[in-house]
Computed example of a mutant assay.
Amino acid sequence: MKALFVLSLSLLALVASAKDNFDFFYLVQQWPGSYCDTKRACCYPVTGKPDPIFTIHGLWPNYNDGTYPSNCDQQNEFDGREIEDLQRTMEEYWPTLACPTGNGLKFWAHEWDKHGTCTESTLDQHSYFLSALNLYKKANLLTALQDAGIEPDDRFYSVDSIKLAIKESVGFTPGLECNKDGSGNQQLSEVYLCVDKSGQKFINCPNFPRISCRKQVQFPSF
């Protein structure tokens, strides 16, 4: 019995440590045209087809060594009532594209349960989603790319030019993630920007996610 008690305390300590000791966030935005233009395809949310803009995937706590905490508190489940005042904005900028068609609550619950519960020492549930929305509005990725002549027109652009356009607009170099369409073409899928532990401002990235983009990638229409 004593051994089990000690083990339980140790597990609680690990959970508390995971909540407190992450080093920075990734704000991850996705391009819906790339999400939908795969063999998996997509389903539009109940509110209809999203606008042709980058949308939020998530705000993910990370460690400087490239690892990350996840699912830190199963007792603190997502509660949609906590973000009722944000829901309309989230439907616009953080829509679900998963099938079957949904209202976003399942997507947001997943993001909170996996990532948000590891930020409780810094951000409660409402603050977590609000911080992601505020950061999103600070980084208008589509405008940054269009100002550099990079359009979602199914043409191919260099990875370096995409990164430079975003850096010149936001002030920090992003990480890029790519996927493949049904024909095997690499396309710009996600953009990673790093955020300080408070969830308030962008910072230089301590590390980047695994690189999956070649030198030239397609920017598909949506």
Rank of each mutant, 00 (worst) to 15 (best):
Q216K: 03
I203F: 14
L9H: 07
S198G: 07
F78H: 03
F22S: 03
P32M: 08
K215Y: 01
N71G: 13
S70R: 14
G182W: 06
N140A: 00
D160E: 15
Y63N: 09
L141Q: 00
F78D: 02
T47D: 07
Y192K: 00
I166D: 04
I166K: 03
A144H: 00
P52W: 06
G48N: 05
M1R: 10
Y157K: 09
K197D: 11
H57M: 12
N185R: 03
P95Q: 02
C43A: 11
G149P: 09
Y44K: 08
K167D: 12
A13M: 01
N76R: 13
K19M: 07
T89N: 02
I56R: 04
T47W: 12
A18W: 04
G116P: 04
C99R: 10
D73E: 15
N64A: 11
Y128R: 09
E92R: 11
E77L: 13
N140V: 00
Q87A: 09
G80R: 06
D113T: 05
A41T: 14
E190K: 15
M90A: 05
I162T: 06
G199D: 04
S131C: 05
K39Y: 05
V191L: 00
G66N: 01
E91T: 03
K137D: 08
G102A: 12
F172R: 05
R214I: 02
L11F: 11
S17L: 13
S221W: 11
G80W: 01
R88E: 12
K201N: 14
V159G: 11
S127F: 10
R155A: 13
D23F: 03
T47S: 12
K201R: 10
I53F: 07
E177V: 03
F202Y: 12
L27A: 02
L135V: 02
K39T: 09
S131F: 02
D79V: 12
N134Y: 04
K201F: 12
I211L: 14
F222L: 14
L14I: 14
R81L: 13
